Computed example of a mutant assay.
Amino acid sequence: MMTHDTLRKLHAMKLFGMARGFEEQLASTTAGPLSFEERLGLLVDQEFTWRESRRLQRLLQAAKLRESAACIEDIDYRPGRGLERSEMASLSLCNWVGQGHNILVTGPTGSGKTWLACALGNQVCRQGLSVNFIRLPLLLEDLAVSHGDGSFRKRLTQLSKVDLLILDDFGMATMNAGGRNDLLEVIECRCGVRSTLITSQLPVDRWHDYLSGGNPTVADAILDRLVSGSHRLELKGESMRKQRNRKTGPA
């Protein structure tokens, strides 16, 4: 009866990890010889682990990573891809996020830009930081609509608070003057405070032409905030999709 009451109270206080650990100790024959301090320590550890796991699940769900299974440990370092183990090991520490630095990932179609961005996003979530993944064309569409319904400032505030904003497919769609101005506002509210990761098929030296559209001043402002002090990852080699298809195709 007392055990049941204890479990009920643990659940009422939302100490679900501790409740599970308590039940496991009751069912285990190895917990008996442990001291009170040792058993309590195990319960606290299980509660902490449970909460950390739940927080990671919430962060990953909110991140909406396109490649949800991508992770740093599975990066393909085969020769010719343009990835260095030492550089990725440094980036996996996520110090660049705390410093508000950006990452620019470029490369041809199928080279694994989006997958790598998601792997870095996954790693940032593991550090307990917030991530938001979105294709840039869709973000610009959303922002254009938000001007009409009066929610633009609210949306901008939301974007400014995310520790890592991943903008996928930069340069894939034509950008009008409104889109350029909205992108500048997004980058401006994050510059030096929050990190932005951009993937693009366009080499960085062609970004100014893409962004200018007759207004080089806006292009200069965007690139100055994005490129200065950023980490650049230039992927190379054959399409990863073609390689996967060969592996899964008929023998």
Rank of each mutant, 00 (worst) to 15 (best):
L211F: 07
R206K: 12
T196Y: 12
L165R: 10
E185F: 00
D205N: 14
V186W: 04
A173K: 15
V193N: 15
G178N: 05
L183N: 02
S160I: 03
M172S: 15
V186A: 04
S146T: 00
V193A: 15
I166W: 13
L159S: 06
G214H: 01
S146V: 00
R153V: 08
L183H: 00
A173M: 14
F170H: 06
R206L: 09
M172Y: 15
G213D: 10
L138P: 08
I166V: 15
L164T: 11
V145E: 09
R190T: 11
D142I: 06
D168T: 12
N215W: 02
P137H: 13
D142E: 14
R155N: 09
I187G: 14
L197N: 11
I166S: 11
C189V: 15
N181C: 07
V162G: 08
K161N: 10
E185V: 01
F170C: 07
E185G: 00
E141A: 15
C191Q: 15
R155V: 00
S195A: 12
R206I: 00
D142F: 02
D168H: 14
S200T: 13
G150E: 03
M175A: 02
H208D: 03
I166K: 08
G171N: 11
R206V: 01
M175W: 04
L140Y: 05
G213M: 05
L165T: 14
L139D: 01
G150I: 07
L139Q: 02
L165H: 14
P137L: 07
D209P: 00
E141I: 05
L136K: 14
P203D: 00
E141M: 08
R180F: 01
R155A: 13
V162F: 04
L138F: 14
P137A: 12
S212N: 06
R180Y: 01
K154T: 12
S151A: 11
G192Y: 14
F152D: 08
G214C: 01
G179V: 01
R153A: 08
D205S: 10
S195F: 09
S151G: 03
F170M: 14
M175L: 15
T196F: 11
D205A: 04
N181P: 01
D182K: 03
G214T: 03
R190Y: 12
L211A: 12
W207T: 02
H208M: 02
H208P: 09
C189N: 13
Q201H: 10
R194S: 13
N176C: 08
R155W: 06
S212G: 07
S160W: 03
D182C: 05
D209A: 05
M175H: 04
Y210S: 06
G213T: 04
G213A: 10
G150Q: 09
E185C: 03
S195D: 08
S146Y: 00
R206A: 05
L136H: 14
M175G: 05
L139C: 08
T199A: 03
N176S: 03
H147T: 10
L159V: 06
G213R: 11
Y210A: 07
L202A: 06
H147G: 10
S200Y: 03
A173Y: 10
D149M: 01
D182Y: 02
S151P: 06
I198Y: 09
S200M: 07
